[in-house]
Design a protein around this nucleic acid. Sequence first.
DNA 1: GTTAGCACTCTATGTTGTTGAGTGCTAAAC
DNA 2: GTTTAGCACTCAACAACATAGAGTGCTAAC
Lengths: 348, 348
Amino acid sequence: MKMDKRKQQVLMALIQDYISTAEPVGSRTIARKYKLGVSPATIRNEMADLEEMGLIEQPHTSAGRVPSDQGYRFYVDNLMKREELSIEEENVIQKSYETKLKDVGNIIQRTGDMISQLTNYAAVVMTTHIGEVSFKHIQLVRMSEKRALVVLVTETGAVHHRMIDIPESISVADLETISSVLNKKLQGRTIGDIRTTLFNEIYFELTKQKQILNKALELVREGLTMESEDKIYLGGVFNILSQPEFNDVEKIKTLLSLLEQEALLSDMMSGFHQSNGITVRIGGELSNKQMRDCSMVIGNYSLGGNQIGSIGILGPTRMDYARAVTIVDYMTNNLCLVMRRLIRGRSK
Amino acid sequence: MKMDKRKQQVLMALIQDYISTAEPVGSRTIARKYKLGVSPATIRNEMADLEEMGLIEQPHTSAGRVPSDQGYRFYVDNLMKREELSIEEENVIQKSYETKLKDVGNIIQRTGDMISQLTNYAAVVMTTHIGEVSFKHIQLVRMSEKRALVVLVTETGAVHHRMIDIPESISVADLETISSVLNKKLQGRTIGDIRTTLFNEIYFELTKQKQILNKALELVREGLTMESEDKIYLGGVFNILSQPEFNDVEKIKTLLSLLEQEALLSDMMSGFHQSNGITVRIGGELSNKQMRDCSMVIGNYSLGGNQIGSIGILGPTRMDYARAVTIVDYMTNNLCLVMRRLIRGRSK
DNA sequence: GTTAGCACTCTATGTTGTTGAGTGCTAAAC
DNA sequence: GTTTAGCACTCAACAACATAGAGTGCTAAC
């Protein structure tokens, strides 16, 4: 079946109406509100076609139509128009970053709060796998005879830490030496680099400098593999409970139990590190099938060319995609500036 | 009115039954299930008295009775018997801590997971105000011409960090010097100490050692006042949604919007740093009146005599207080050992 | 002081009827 | 060939009503 102009108009009208009312949309409503210049009967025919094409569906015989996942997909890909944020909204956002920025966590949290406030959906903000980020500083702190804390600072100002075992023979001074050698050697490399290639080199350097046990380095290596300890901020969940599709306690429970699993969230957010653009995952397209009532709009933010994290908006499939995309777009671009401000200081 | 033995028995039976069934309890049920050796009619009389005393109430005329906040209070203070955890449960808990402990956050998260799993309520675990904990290491890392990152490691293995402004004239070497002087001077002091008393002393030392600008120290001071950046873990919220008192979407929304505010949570948890024991806050006793359908059982955990955090169980007022208290008790004590293991390494 | 008996209350549940929105189909109009 | 008016039909949502059952308080007897 051909997707002619009018079918598109009908689909567009239907989706827009459904997005704003959450009620199945009938032919009469479309004819009346969206002035396509044809009668309800004609629209009924078009709708029958659209249904056959799998773009819309009927909850039950005597109800209006509702967009299907495929319908939303077509809308997002072909019909949707980008919006702009209003000046006031941009001001609100900028203002929220104005108070002293203290650390990355801070920024992430504010970003998430802002998003959920602006959209009335839930927001997910996460920092990507640490491997892609440049090394800034490492410090080994001796906590007891057997244990030390590895503290790793990345170029982005993120701090990772982890406790490791140390041989009892290593002194505070030794750890200091190790720290300083590492700092010299690792300057400017990415964490990924370090993990995979640099070890032999450093190992050589260290044995030359001092008779430190083989084990020392292995331990540092162990300390460095802080596998994917992404920080995830999730907020505004209660927002999406206001959406009429979630007035069922069972659904809320499932959703919440899923959202509490950070691994799962992180999973859903990842898988498109490649793209610079914004990804929209609709209903069943999400990696987790239990989330089929939800959609996500996801974008990556970067610093100095490296993608260092993602921003996601989580809402019902009946979500205002145009607005969500606009906001993710704005926020990802903005985050880059804000991060730079955190690290470089206020420029003006 | 006198609270005689039998009234207590009736109250006890009523509360136990209500806790397990969530249904208003009638006189017949008590007579049948709890074998007090009297007829329903007698129990009705006793219940009328208990109601007059404000310990139980009637949702409506033809329903059974339900404990009031006061009723639960009496139960918790006078009637409730401490339980013991079963050996299996203890094993499960111990096993959950067995995999490599990497940092404090790790431990806190596992503790929270464990609690919500064992109780089917929500768990809140937080680290207390940093001021009470001893200093271990400080490091200033230069991030750009104008900015540096202060990284602070406490004796408990917690890492705090914060970005500060620095004068452009300060070099990496200067920061290194400052770091090392600070490290020497601050060894073993508590953060609170440092903030209030030690500054002059260090200031003197530093000016003697090197001509570093006045500003440097002020900045460190600024960096140190990381006010109450408590980390809060909250998990298992979806558990408490299974409780029949939360099958109302409105209630869930209110609850969730409250729980998303960390400040509020932190508020509810604090206010009894004094006590070593376990605090039970029932319904309206909670600092936030919107939470009157919930109760919390809260305990503090400590390390080397210092209270360094709190554990809380959040459930409906109709909560199994005996079990909650047992679990909080076990977990707080256990956490002390686990923390020590994190820092000292496995002892055997 | 305790208990059996009884009238009374009130929610929860199920039944039934009604309403109204929306459809698909047909035949006429354009 | 496309569009539209008209109409019979379907189905969820809602309200009105009836019924059952759990539980109470009171009274009078034990």
